[in-house]
Every structure is written in structure tokens, then in C-alpha cells.
Nucleic acid binder design. Structure first.
Lengths: 261, 261
DNA sequence: CGAGCGATTGAGGTTGATCAATACTTGTGG
DNA sequence: CCACAAGTATTGATCAACCTCAATCGCTCG
């Protein structure tokens, strides 16, 4: 498995390595971590609310969502999972899962058993702390979403989400020229933001008319990052990213960000 | 400090001990954990968004809240902290705090330095896992709140919160006859639920009229637990409590729950 | 080519927000 | 013990954001 899946292709390892430089020992442990690879089509449940999973799910590529359902069937998406995320890492210490995880697009995933993860944590305290930290960042995102859903209007709410996705996707190299692929229906967007599909649609039209976003298919382009940030009242600090991950986006927009004068 | 603050008075130790029986070693480590005691009046900030704290805050008694502020000053309370909670435990692994923690009522708190906590975690992996788990339960509550705020109407939303507080307070012995002290203004309730003070007020009146709740000062009584649960679509499993913590509440209401036939 | 999903549009409704007073409550100083 | 100040609860009237229901349109795919 190692040969066919080198660590530089493992977004989890890349992520951890950017937080603190991994020792050779730690890197090897992560490389050797048994992982069952799978490709899952879109709109499939990976685990369901109420399950008692014995493994976690690392997303290698694609988009996933965690969600919960109300008694009368209304859905709330509580997070989007992208490459490098383990959307059900909390199942490691919580017996019964309080949310479902499902794919929004086709995903390549790696399943890691709880046993292997516990073993890894026991042997490598720094990795344990880093994984703990990952779940704490998830929590910080939840808090920001609560503020977003509870206290902002639809227009700013959507803008905020688009900002967050830009920054998170940028950190894993999935952004080019302030544009990214967002394979998500308007209904799913609404489920994440606590608004109706119909309303999402109308607000998106307004945002397009205002020149805040440009869409082509599932591709979302952001012509004026500063303005979108302002509309979304977006401050990325809750994402706890390294300065390097943010720098590319804060360069002046409109000229190739790779070059210097 | 030990003599004047025995472990059975430490709600954190009580909580951990209910999750898994502490070894003598672990208990002693917790007993000896240095803790700076303080009494903080209501409506004081303990830490503020943007701070880089070097210690965590264990609530020994009273009510606290974590909150975030929108650019135009609207506040979202993201959690209520009660005895045994460490509302800023995430600061242990997140450099800059993304929320404030403030008192809602007078609180007795114990400050524990990050260094001491890290030390404790290093020496006692089971305690480390238990603390990690505590932050994961916080996350589960965040997710439930997102569902509540995003997808339920004010009436059911308030009911849900009252259910959650009943169960959580019950687990730390602060409930008697389906009634508890909730020293929280209607404005704060609104800030937690994403609704206006005015609207909170009107909905509460409706709930009183419907016999769902009875209030006297800050005391909240629940005459019909089953009905409130139903209105709030409340299922406590996300709180990850032990069966014992829940049993008392699920006994038939209306006769002394201590007695058996 | 029709099915099916997702996007869009239109026409009313509702919930909950806003603004602006007015009543309570409670702690405080006299 | 009383009057006052300040905070909290309550009320009324009006308004806006967002929802619901019900079509219609467009695209992709078998």
C-alpha cells in the first residue's frame, strides 16, 4: 500500500506536517498507518447518525458533508469535509455517532480503524495532540457557523461560507485564481446555511448581479476577494491556519500571485 | 489547597469518575492539579476573543457562556457552561481563542495552567483521552445547536434548549423535581438561540400559557417533561451521558422519583 | 426522446425583526 | 422603610426576510 500511496499524496500527512514538522519516526508511523482505500460515488452515506463505527474516514479527494436531521425531516449540514479532513474523527471517543457523513461528490476515502488510531496516538503523543487539535478546529468552525446561521442574513451568510471554502480549499491547493470547484447543489447550500433552496437561488442571483461571484457549472469564481470578505464579515483566524496558507490569498488580486514585481 | 477543596467537591473529578472509574493514581493526580480559585461576579469576561490564554477555566459553580460577536455587534452565544465544564478547554491546543467566555451569574472558577494540563495529559493518557472526549461532546452540542438554530422555529428551539439544560444540570445534581435555576436574561436566551429579546418574550408567554413551563424568578419548572421533550424534538443521546445520569429523569413524573412502589 | 434532477420564477403567507413605549423588579442610598 | 436608578420584562404597531406551494425551464443521461 505504501508504494502505491506515497505520503506526499496523503493530505492528512501534508496537513500535519504543515502544523509541526514531523519527525522521521512520526512520518513513518503515519505512512504505515493501515488504510482501506475506497471510491464512493456522490450522495452516498458513509456512516449514519446512531451508528457505532469502529473506524474513521479520511477524505482523500472530493466533497463530503456531516449532517443531522430534525424530527420532521429538515436537514442541517453541520460541516463540509474536503481533502485531508476526517469528518468523523470524533467517533474515536464518542460511542454513538450524533451525525451522518455523506458524500456530496465522488470521493476517494481512506478508512482507518479506531484501534489503529488509538495505537498511533499512544505511541506518538504529538500526533495525538495534533489530531485532538483537528477536532478542536472543527469545533471552532462549528462556532463560526452558529454565529453565521444565528446572526447573519442570508446574503452575508452565503458570502461567509464562500469565503471559508476559498480559504480552506486554498490551504490544500484546490484554488486557482480565486476560483474553486464547489460540487454542491443549491439545496445542499441551503441545508448548510439554514435557508430554503428557493431563497438560496434568489440570493445567489443577487450576488451574481452585484459582481460578488461568478459561477460556471460547479465552478465558483470570486472576482473581488476583498469585497466578498467584507460582505461575509470574514476573518479566517478561527480556521487556525498557518500564515503561509493565508499569504497567497492576501496578495493583491488581479495579477499572477506567483510573481513579484 | 487539598484539604480545603476535597475531590468530591470538584465537579470535574466527579464527571471524569462517572465516565470511567479513576485509578488511585489518576485521582491523586487530579487532586493535586494546581488550581487557582476565584469568585467572579456576573457579566464579567473571563477571556476574550482574540486572547492567547495560558490557562483554562474550570467552572465550579454558576453559569457561564461562550460567545462570538458579529461585525455589527450582534452576539451569538455558542454554549452555556455549568459546573464541571471547562468552556475554554480548546484553548489548550488552539493558539488564539476564537470566542469569549463570560459569566452569566456569579461563578466560582478554578484556573488551571496549560502547562499543568499538558503535564497531566502526558502522564495520564486516559485522562488525556477523557479531556479530548469532553471537547468532542462540546462539538456534539455545537452540532445540535446548529440544527436547532438553523432548522427549528423559535418555539421548538427554546423548548429544546430547556430540555438540554434540564438533562445537563441533572447530571451534575442541580435539578430537583424537574425544576432548575436558570439565571439567564431573555436577551441572553435570544443570543443563544438566534432570536430577538422581544420574540423570546412572546414565545415564552406562549409556552407558559401552553403549560410547558412555569417560571418564578430565575427558576424554571417543567410540569410535563414528556411533552416538552416532544415539542423540542429532544433526544439526549448527543450529550453522551451515562445511563445513570438519564435514568432519574425518565422515571415517571408526578411522584417522588426516589421511591419505588 | 422522455425521465429526472436541479435551477428558476411567481404569488401569496408567516415568522420573527424593528422601533418605541411602558411596566416591573431589584439593589442602593438616604 | 421609601424613592430612585438601572436593568429586565412586556406590549403594540409596523415591516422585512424568508418560507411555502406550485409551476416552468434546462440540462444530462440512459
Amino acid at each position: 500500500m505504501h508504494a502505491s500511496f506515497p505520503s506526499q499524496d496523503n493530505p492528512l500527512i501534508r496537513k500535519l506536517d504543515s502544523v509541526f514538522t514531523l519527525t522521521e519516526d512520526e512520518r513513518q508511523a503515519l505512512d504505515k498507518l493501515p488504510m482501506q482505500l475506497a471510491v464512493i460515488k456522490d450522495d452516498q452515506d458513509i456512516v449514519r447518525e446512531g451508528d457505532r463505527p469502529t473506524r474513521c474516514c479520511l477524505i482523500l479527494s472530493g466533497f463530503a458533508a456531516t449532517s443531522k436531521i430534525t424530527a420532521d425531516g429538515k436537514r442541517q449540514i453541520t460541516s463540509f469535509g474536503i481533502a485531508g479532513d476526517i469528518p468523523d474523527l470524533h467517533s474515536l471517543h464518542l460511542r454513538v455517532l450524533d451525525n451522518s457523513v455523506s458524500t456530496l461528490s465522488t470521493c476517494r476515502v481512506g478508512f482507518i480503524t479506531h484501534d489503529d488510531l488509538r495505537d498511533l496516538c499512544e505511541r506518538h503523543p504529538r500526533i495525538a495532540a495534533a489530531l485532538w487539535r483537528e477536532t478542536l478546529i472543527d469545533g471552532a468552525i462549528f462556532r463560526e457557523w452558529m454565529l453565521n446561521i444565528g446572526r447573519r442574513e442570508a446574503y452575508n451568510r452565503i458570502a461567509h461560507l464562500f469565503c471559508e471554502m476559498l480559504v480552506r480549499l486554498s490551504a490544500v491547493g484546490l484554488v486557482e485564481d480565486y476560483a474553486y470547484d464547489l460540487p454542491i447543489t443549491q439545496a445542499e447550500l441551503g441545508d448548510a446555511l439554514g435557508i430554503t433552496t428557493v431563497h438560496v437561488n434568489r440570493v445567489l442571483q443577487q450576488m451574481r448581479a452585484d459582481g460578488l461571484i461568478v459561477t460556471q457549472g460547479t465552478r465558483l469564481a470570486i472576482p473581488d476577494w476583498d469585497r466578498l470578505k467584507e460582505v461575509g464579515e470574514f476573518n479566517p483566524s478561527y480556521l487556525q491556519l498557518e500564515q503561509g496558507d493565508l499569504a497567497a490569498l492576501d496578495a493583491a488580486q488581479g495579477r499572477p500571485s506567483q510573481r513579484r514585481a
